[in-house]
């Protein structure tokens, strides 16, 4: 994977970076608390909160009952009244049990109350396939929340961003959902020490190119970068943009790139239909960048099926390096 840090730079895993962000925030602000299932002595299903209970105690690292709706709602109520809770869903799939509190309450309270209240809650959601956990523990549902005014929806792809985005989310007065890809937790990369904020709503150009723009977030960024490297060997220059934020979405970075390359591919793990790709494609089609398109827009998304168990099926159900590479090649060679 990319983001290989020079040896003299400090290197942390994605999970360690998130943990460091939580620790920094809790040291600095006594109103920051963690809530979630098995996040205490167990350390969380993915060991992200490991040892934080030792440092901050059970009052600030709270194991909740298996009550996603109630737990999320308690976090919302606490955020409304002076705390800054970070609520961990054990799997992002379980957020569906808490849709009421996320969508009807957290996202809308500020508006319903005419700006008289804030809900500075942060939801952390381990997402994505590739672990053999099948249909109910592997989904990528971030786009669902992109449809909800009042929420902010982030997707860090690197350890550095995972830390910076969590700290930015805590500094934000509105509810923020951070989708963390389970396969990235062990990924290592350079992480600056101390506190820093990754701006919310800003995409990042990760690789410059001239022939095709590939927009991808989370783990798909790494697959897109790997595909771009292979394409470069055959003379195809792909520009890769790390989407980073689904809501708000960074129009300008994407449009500027499309104006430059004239071709656009959107790669995402969620089901292809009605997803992030549809939003980005429509946004380009509605903008002045439309006039710069020199080929149809391509979306590469998840299969129109629940995430399957069989490892080959599972792999085939979401975009991989070879499928991204092949699609970009066809696009640039005018085969679509």
């Amino acid at each position: 994977m990319n983001a290989q840090a020079p040896t003299d730079l400090r290197t942390l895993s994605y999970a360690e970076a998130i943990r460091e962000a939580m620790a920094i925030a809790m040291e600095a602000d006594p109103t920051v608390i963690l809530m979630g299932e098995d996040i205490g002595v167990y350390g969380g299903a993915f060991q992200v909160t490991l040892d934080l209970i030792d440092r901050f105690g059970p009052d600030r690292v709270m194991d909740t009952p298996i009550s996603e709706l109630g737990g999320a709602g308690v976090a919302v109520g606490a955020a409304l009244t002076g705390l800054k809770p970070i609520f961990e869903f054990q799997f992002s799939d379980f957020a569906m049990l808490a849709m009421e509190q996320i969508v009807n309450q957290a996202a809308k309270l500020r508006y319903m109350l005419g700006g008289e209240a804030s809900v500075p809650v942060v939801f952390r959601l381990p997402a994505g396939s590739g672990t053999g956990a099948a249909a109910q523990h592997s989904q990528s549902i971030e786009a669902w929340f992109g449809h909800v005014p009042g929420l902010k929806v982030l997707q860090p792809a690197t350890p550095e961003d995972a830390k910076g985005m969590l700290l930015a989310a805590l500094a934000d007065p509105d509810p923020v959902m951070i989708f963390e890809h389970k396969l990235l937790y062990k990924m290592k990369g350079h992480v600056p020490a101390g506190s820093y904020l990754t701006p919310i709503g800003k995409a990042l150009l990760r690789r410059a190119g001239t022939d095709v723009t590939i927009v991808a977030g989370s783990i798909m960024l790494h697959r897109a970068l790997e595909a771009a490297e292979k394409l470069a060997a055959e003379g195809i220059s792909a520009e890769v943009i790390d989407l980073r934020s689904i809501r708000p979405i960074d129009h300008e970075t994407i449009l500027a790139s499309v104006r430059k390359t004239g071709r656009l591919m959107v790669v995402y793990e969620g089901v292809k239909a009605f997803g992030v790709g549809a939003e980005i494609s429509a946004m380009v089609a509605e903008s002045d960048a439309f006039d710069y398109l020199d080929a149809p827009i391509l979306r590469l998304g998840g299969a129109d099926a629940p995430v399957p168990y069989n490892p080959d099926l599972e792999r085939a159900s979401v975009p991989q390096v070879d499928t991204i590479e092949a699609a970009a090649r066809r696009l640039v060679r005018r085969e679509v």
């Binding site: 006039d291 398109l293 020199d294 080929a295 005018r334």
Partner: peptide
């Protein structure tokens, strides 16, 4: 493509005069 149409418009040439090299004779930039 939109880009080809835009280029033709800007140059003041009729698109019909340009031979397309894309799929089904689509005119590219």
């Amino acid at each position: 493509t939109p880009s080809a149409r835009h280029a033709a418009r800007s140059a003041g040439i009729a698109l019909e005069r340009v031979r397309g090299s894309g799929p089904l004779g689509r005119v590219q930039r």
